[in-house]
């Protein structure tokens, strides 16, 4: 048998909707078979040990993977969803063993302590997302913030998006296998890989000429720039306009609907309401400098 190196990974689903997982299933190149079954890069295979939506085992055989079935300092922790922290973690569990509720908060901390690195997949895991929207009923927080509160020092890469494009996640994993952890020049201030999140949507928008010419749509679906309808493209760093979605079929603005800014920490409350033009004054608050 050829010598293939195994890279164990654990995927926790927390306060989210499973949409990030479903989005990753849409990956085209590499295909999802390449990701789950094949050597993702020559000689290296990601061994996904735990993922609630696809794993065969239920109950005890599943929970056992999280409790002792993992090599110390030898796995990748992938977090989908925000961490519900209110009332001692009672608002969300990853499972139960011998009558003990294993809270998402507790398991995130436990697993992060021994992980090589943490990938926060999606805006909920990266920044809190909609579950943390006002009045934040479950005390939902980003993965990075709960790790900082607990004093756990482990590299975190944020891959936000509601959901993230599959290329953003799969490409980041391929990068980890080929080149190791991203360096400081590879990430922006928010821990996002610059290769995907380095440019404003507005910079590469096909409707940019309409903006410059002052041609604005008055209803979703009309031609023209969608800025007056609340488009957050001028405040949002992502490559959606050039990469497009679902194997290049379309994207939100292409389909006549404003960009929601779903990759930003201001989603949803800072960008509320979604379909209202953002004022000049508020615009200044959202200025996030981008490394070039």
């Amino acid at each position: 048998m050829i010598d293939v190196q195994e890279y164990p990974a654990v995927w926790l689903q927390m306060s989210g909707c499973s949409g990030c997982s479903v989005s990753v299933l849409n990956t085209v190149a590499p295909s999802i078979r390449n990701v789950l079954v094949d050597e993702l890069v020559p000689g290296k295979h990601v061994n996904l040990r735990f993922h609630p939506t696809i794993m065969a085992g239920s109950g005890e055989p599943a929970v056992d993977v999280l409790l002792g079935g993992l090599p110390q300092k030898g796995y990748l922790l992938i977090c989908e969803g925000a961490v519900p922290t209110k009332d001692g973690g009672a608002y969300g569990g990853v499972g139960e063993l011998d009558g003990k509720h294993l809270s998402m908060h507790e398991k995130t901390l436990d697993l992060a302590r021994d992980a090589l690195a943490v990938l926060a997949v999606g805006t909920c895991a990266s920044f809190g997302g909609i579950p943390s929207g006002r009045p934040n009923p479950s005390g939902a927080k980003s993965v990075q913030s709960v790790l900082e509160e607990a004093g756990i020092d482990v590299p975190v890469v944020n891959i936000p998006g509601c959901p993230p494009h599959p290329d953003w996640f799969v490409g980041t994993v391929v990068g980890l296998l080929l080149r190791g952890l991203p360096g400081p020049d590879d990430l922006d201030e928010l821990g996002r890989p610059l290769v995907y999140y380095g440019k404003l949507v507005h910079e590469n928008c096909p409707r940019r000429a309409d903006f410059d010419a002052g041609k604005f749509a008055q209803h979703p679906g009309q031609p023209g720039c969608l800025y007056e309808l609340g488009c957050k493209g001028p405040m949002t760093y992502a490559d959606c306009p050039t990469r497009q979605w679902n194997d290049g079929q379309n994207w939100c603005v292409g389909a006549g609907n404003p960009c929601l800014g779903c990759v930003e920490p201001f989603f949803p409350d800072g960008f509320d309401p979604m379909y209202k033009k953002i004022s000049e004054e508020r615009l200044k608050r959202f200025a996030v400098s981008s490394k070039e």
Partner: peptide
């Protein structure tokens, strides 16, 4: 995605 803009979480149904 062709008519919905993206998926999951499509954009266009209004």
């Amino acid at each position: 995605c062709i008519f919905g803009g993206k998926m999951p979480h499509s954009a266009t149904i209004m």
